[in-house]
Design a protein around this nucleic acid. Sequence first.
DNA 1: TTTAGATACATCGTAAATCTATGTATATAG
DNA 2: CTATATACATAGATTTACGATGTATCTAAA
Lengths: 109, 109
Amino acid sequence: MRIRKELLKGSTAIMILKIISKEDAYGYQITQELYADSGETFKLNEGTLYPILHTLEKDGLIKSYSKISEQGRLRKYYSITPLGRVNLAAQIEEWRVFSRAVDAILKEN
Amino acid sequence: MRIRKELLKGSTAIMILKIISKEDAYGYQITQELYADSGETFKLNEGTLYPILHTLEKDGLIKSYSKISEQGRLRKYYSITPLGRVNLAAQIEEWRVFSRAVDAILKEN
DNA sequence: TTTAGATACATCGTAAATCTATGTATATAG
DNA sequence: CTATATACATAGATTTACGATGTATCTAAA
């Protein structure tokens, strides 16, 4: 099922942060993991991904370093900061409250 | 907990449609029900509500009629159309797929 | 009596998030 | 050699919600 982009708004950054929190990751890898781990539901555009990564770094939630892969390609890896972990936990709690409230409304009859 | 407005994007119209599907409702009433049924989580602004109602009506998902209340106040009631019911069912299913996918990402470790 | 707050509808301008499109560049498979 | 995947980046357009503002009535308190 294709998900309207509007539904995604607000939750994309949390998911990116969560993926980086598991292990350092580079941009392209993040889109692949997000696609696989969501059961092929989320196909992240590059025009969405990179600006979010830049914002997260500017806000001090992640930091980056460059590394050359075995294939000789330059990759920009991101790792989560302590501040990022605190922020992630808060955002996950917020998501839980939000999604439970929506469920409550949609379940009502 | 205050929910960032960004999280709301895309799900507000579904919830409004769901409330109207239960019984005909007018604008102010919808904000009250949404607030109560969500456990005081969703406080809908008028600048959000009325444009959405107008769009839903323009799209043929709801229709309106005016009625005077016992207090002598004019109210604009909305009722869901058959097309609105079909659309609501599809959007609820979409929400389920979406929220399960986000849960899957955030649960991963 | 006047004033504040709740009820009731509406629109305008702004901000935020994502998308599409575009650009650059390299590696790999057919 | 050509298409696809990998890899990063930005600009402009679209969508959605918000805050501010406007109009108007009813009710309760000061």
